[in-house]
């Protein structure tokens, strides 16, 4: 089922002659996990702003083509109603924290308060999300006194609490330690299993390869490649174009270059592991 349809969409920011997005034609289906990758300034965050309705509701500028959210043109959506449909986790956690609340607990509840959710449900949702993100020990702290990574988790929590159908997530792990990063991907995967549609901008391609259903590679405002993680990441062209690919794929390419290729271009550690084990058992005679 179609969640977000982009039909020939182009966009220029106000006072800018360059196109931030150019001729984007793509359909995001409901319940799928989309990984959006590509160099900085390629238009990833602008794409997020677009599907979240911040373009054209907040950012002015020139928008052409059609953006349909659940079949309805984004221009016709009421901005605040759209924010209950689509949750947006900003790239910079320092931007997302409201700065007006004295405790993390209140910060997470802020969005729910604004929706007019009743108190009991609000408390229940906040407690659940606090547990999910393992931030129990932060709830009484002032959000302004948190470290970058802690802020990022709180920002994430405050959006999860809103229980939106579609989540647009812009580099949620940029400030996180590796273990917390793995936790966040697990949580996003769990949200997907609840039927939510996920659009995730990330530079950590190893994790994108492992979790996403579809990968979009953006370049100069357009979608340069799209497809399943295997389709996209096995393409060696990406490296020349300055796009990172998973370590497992790099390993495959290295071995291919030395005439000892795997059976196929592996894109996850699990695939590489299977291929190497097969080779080891051949050598050890048990295969």
């Amino acid at each position: 089922m179609k969640g977000i349809e982009l039909k020939n969409v182009s966009y220029q920011y106000p006072l800018s002659e360059a196109f931030a997005l150019k001729n984007i034609h793509y359909t995001f289906e409901k319940g799928k996990f989309y990984g959006i990758i590509g160099p900085n300034s390629a238009g990833k965050t602008t794409l997020c702003n677009l599907v979240r309705g911040l373009i054209p509701h907040f950012y002015e500028g020139e928008l052409s083509g059609d953006v349909l959210i659940e079949g309805k043109d984004v221009r016709e959506w009421d901005g605040s109603l759209l924010s209950t449909k689509i949750g947006y986790i900003f790239q910079n956690p320092f931007t997302q924290i409201s700065g007006v609340k004295d405790t993390v607990l209140e910060e997470i509840a802020l969005g729910l308060e604004n929706l007019g959710i009743d108190k009991e449900e609000m408390i229940e949702r906040v407690i659940n999300v606090v547990k999910l993100l393992k931030i129990e020990d932060l709830i009484k702290k002032n959000p302004n006194n948190l470290s970058g990574g802690q802020r990022q988790r709180v920002a994430f929590a405050s959006i999860i609490a809103m229980d939106n159908d579609i989540l647009v997530i812009d580099e949620p792990t940029s400030q996180l330690d590796p273990e917390s990063t793995a936790d966040i991907f697990e949580i996003i995967n769990m949200l997907k299993s609840q039927g939510k549609t996920i659009l995730l901008v990330e530079h950590k391609v190893d994790l994108i390869a492992e979790y996403s259903d579809e990968v979009l590679v953006m370049e100069n405002g357009h979608i340069a490649y799209s497809g399943t993680p295997s389709d996209v990441f096995s393409n060696i062209e990406l490296i020349d174009r300055g796009v990172a690919i998973p370590q497992a794929a790099l390993l495959s390419h290295d071995l291919q270059r030395q005439n000892k290729p795997f059976d196929f271009i592996t894109i996850t550690n699990e695939q590489a592991k299977q291929q190497i084990m097969k080779r080891m058992s051949c050598v050890n005679g048990s295969y």
């Binding site: 330690d177 590796p178 273990e179 370590q247 390993l251 550690n269 590489a272 592991k273 190497i276 084990m277």
Partner: peptide, 16 residues
């Protein structure tokens, strides 16, 4: 303890 991870290649070597 430090909640870090081996680099991907290290993880793979360790898994193997």
């Amino acid at each position: 303890q430090a909640k870090i991870k081996k680099p991907q290649i290290g993880e793979l070597a360790s898994d193997l």
